[in-house]
Design a protein around this nucleic acid. Structure first.
Length: 223
DNA sequence: TGCCAGGCCGGGT
DNA sequence: ACCCGGCATGGC
């Protein structure tokens, strides 16, 4: 099925309007949030970030020097708190050692090189790296997540077997290189996914994209 | 109440 | 090269 990815975007935007993701936050807070939100509800992440703010720790050097156990307690509400404390510390060590804790310097690095650097940090995978690049660095990278995969595969526009990179290419090669567009598109996909495309809801009834569903083919309810 | 969330890593085949 | 378990809290 051939579908204009821009048309899908328009449909989502008309339905849901602007999502205002990570508005008015500092780039550093976005970076921290990108790790904390891994496979986790954003609401839980907000509690953890509130703890960090209250402790005056939303700054690279300060957060990097917090004792591990204390960091764990502060971010506990975000879930996987031991794992995430380690991942955060890896990322902070990278940021401080490599860029003296300056996000401005970090984002001055050439995009593909910086992406590779981030991916080399323990606990930073493709989605986390791209979220940091797009939402903290305002760099033109399309963020792919589980909802993106599930929604577009269920509709038959991509394959269930496509990996992160294939899906990212699918979007970037069919869209202008526009930070604002990538920002809003990903946020809209998440919005759609939360309401209409959960794992247990394969029929997608009342989904704004319902009329795009392929006829006949079952939609792999377990995915 | 059980299922799930804006992933990623490491060990086993 | 895959596949799968582990990680953990809070909301619906």
């Amino acid at each position: 099925m051939t579908v204009n990815v821009r048309e899908i975007y328009s449909r989502l935007f008309e339905t849901f309007g602007p999502q205002h993701w990570w508005p008015g936050k500092t780039p550093f807070e976005v970076l921290v949030g990108a790790v904390l939100v891994q496979n986790t509800n954003w609401q839980n992440v907000e509690r953890a970030i509130a703890n960090l703010r209250e402790a005056d720790l939303l700054e690279p050097h300060a957060l990097g020097e917090v004792p591990p156990e204390e960091l764990e307690e502060l971010i506990r509400p975000a879930g996987y708190f031991r794992v995430k404390a380690r991942r955060l510390r890896s990322l902070l060590e990278f940021l401080v050692e490599r860029y003296d804790g300056s996000l401005e310097r970090m984002f001055g690095t050439e995009l593909s090189a910086l992406r590779e650097e981030l991916l080399s940090v323990h606990g930073v995978g493709p989605e986390t790296a791209d979220s940091i690049l797009l939402y903290a660095g305002e760099l033109p990278v399309f963020v792919v997540d589980a909802y993106t995969h599930r929604i577009f595969a269920r509709h038959g526009w991509i394959s269930f077997e496509d990996d992160y990179h294939a899906i990212q290419e699918y979007f970037q090669s069919n869209l202008p290189d526009d930070v604002q567009l990538y920002n809003e598109y990903h946020a809209l996909i998440v919005r759609l996914g939360k309401h209409f495309c959960r794992k247990s809801n394969p029929k997608c009834a009342k989904c704004p994209l319902h009329d795009y569903l392929p006829d006949g083919e079952p939609l792999e309810p377990e995915f």
